[in-house]
Amino acid sequence: MMKTYRGSCHCKAVTFEVDIDLAGGTGRCNCSICMKTRNWNAIVKPAAFRLRCWPEDVAEYSFGTGVGKYKFCKVCGVHSFSTGNIPEIGGDFVSVRVNCLDDVPEDELAAAPVNFADGRNDNWRESPKFTCHL
Rank of each mutant, 00 (worst) to 15 (best):
R125P: 00
D118N: 13
A117Y: 11
T15E: 11
G77D: 04
A42Q: 11
T83A: 09
T4H: 02
K3D: 07
K12Y: 06
S62P: 02
A47M: 04
H133I: 11
D57N: 13
G64A: 12
P105H: 08
E106Q: 13
F63A: 12
M1T: 09
E56H: 06
W40G: 00
P113C: 06
T65C: 04
A13N: 13
C53S: 11
V114A: 03
G91S: 01
G90R: 04
E126T: 13
H79M: 12
I86L: 09
D92C: 00
P128W: 02
Y5F: 14
D122V: 11
N121R: 15
V78A: 13
V104S: 06
T131F: 06
T65L: 11
N115C: 01
C73Q: 06
A59E: 15
R28S: 02
G90C: 05
E108G: 10
V96F: 03
T4A: 02
K129P: 04
P87N: 07
R28I: 00
T4S: 04
R50F: 00
C29A: 08
P55S: 06
S95C: 12
V18N: 04
N121Q: 14
T15L: 10
G24I: 10
G77L: 04
R38I: 07
M2C: 02
P55R: 06
T65V: 05
T4D: 01
C29D: 12
N85M: 05
T37P: 00
V114H: 01
E106S: 09
C9Q: 01
E88M: 10
R125F: 12
N121M: 10
N41Y: 15
S32T: 14
H79G: 03
G24Q: 12
P113E: 02
M35W: 14
C11T: 08
G25W: 09
W40D: 01
E56K: 09
I20A: 09
C31H: 08
V94M: 03
L51G: 05
E60G: 00
W40L: 07
G25P: 11
L134W: 03
R38Q: 15
V75W: 01
N115D: 03
